[in-house]
Amino acid sequence: MPTSQDMTTDLDTGLLDALQHQVAVFARRAEQTRLGGTGQLRNSMDRAAYLLLNRLDQEGPMGVKALAAGMGIDSSTVTRQVAPLVDTGLVKRTSHPEDGRAVVLQLSPRGQARLEEVRSSRRDLMATVTEGWTADEREAFCTLLTRFNSALSVRQGRVQPAAPREPSDPA
């Protein structure tokens, strides 16, 4: 079985250097802007909150352990990140429908509305950033970025993030 060193020498090291540099630049730009959309909603929701709300929206109510496992992070991290979302009314704690002793987290109507505002703003940003791109280029970029993120998740031993909506699905 080839080692990572063997694979690196088999590939174009110049291309790999360019790729790692572009990933580093992307990470810096993403952190600087938090890809927070446009207008007044720019930078209005941090990455952790967005990912938690999005997962609850896509997969429905769930407990902290399930949410943590699905996101590939520790339960204590989810608990810490969810607390302000509960405090601000974006997420609510409810009883588990089958086991009233267990608590599940659920997106509140306020959280659903806020998430949709942020999604809309971020869609506007993506449309602006890729304005000169064809639909095929956008789809190819999304496919490759999803594949890249999935490979990183596998490499880090984490569960794959929730699948994005298909480009043809309405938002």
Rank of each mutant, 00 (worst) to 15 (best):
P109R: 03
P2V: 09
R123I: 07
A140N: 08
G63S: 04
R110H: 10
P164D: 08
G157E: 03
A151S: 11
N54L: 14
T38R: 06
Q5W: 12
A171S: 08
A162Y: 13
A113P: 09
R123N: 10
R110P: 11
D136W: 02
V86S: 00
D124N: 12
E59Y: 13
E59Q: 12
D99M: 14
M62G: 06
Q40T: 15
F141Q: 08
D12V: 06
L56S: 01
R138Y: 01
R155V: 15
G14Q: 05
V86E: 02
A48P: 05
T94D: 09
V23S: 08
D87I: 07
D57C: 10
S4N: 12
G39S: 07
R34H: 14
K65Q: 15
S44P: 05
L52M: 03
G72K: 04
V86C: 01
S120A: 11
A102N: 12
L144K: 10
D57I: 07
A162C: 14
D17M: 12
F141E: 08
G72N: 07
H21G: 13
Q81A: 14
R165T: 04
E131I: 08
L35K: 12
G39T: 05
T134D: 00
L67R: 00
G89N: 02
T128F: 11
P170K: 09
A49L: 04
D74K: 02
G157P: 01
N54G: 15
T88A: 14
V78S: 00
H96S: 06
P164K: 03
Q112M: 09
L115W: 00
A68I: 02
Q40A: 14
V82N: 00
D136K: 03
V159L: 11
M126V: 06
R28G: 09
F141T: 10
P84E: 00
L105A: 00
T38A: 04
D74Q: 05
T134K: 00
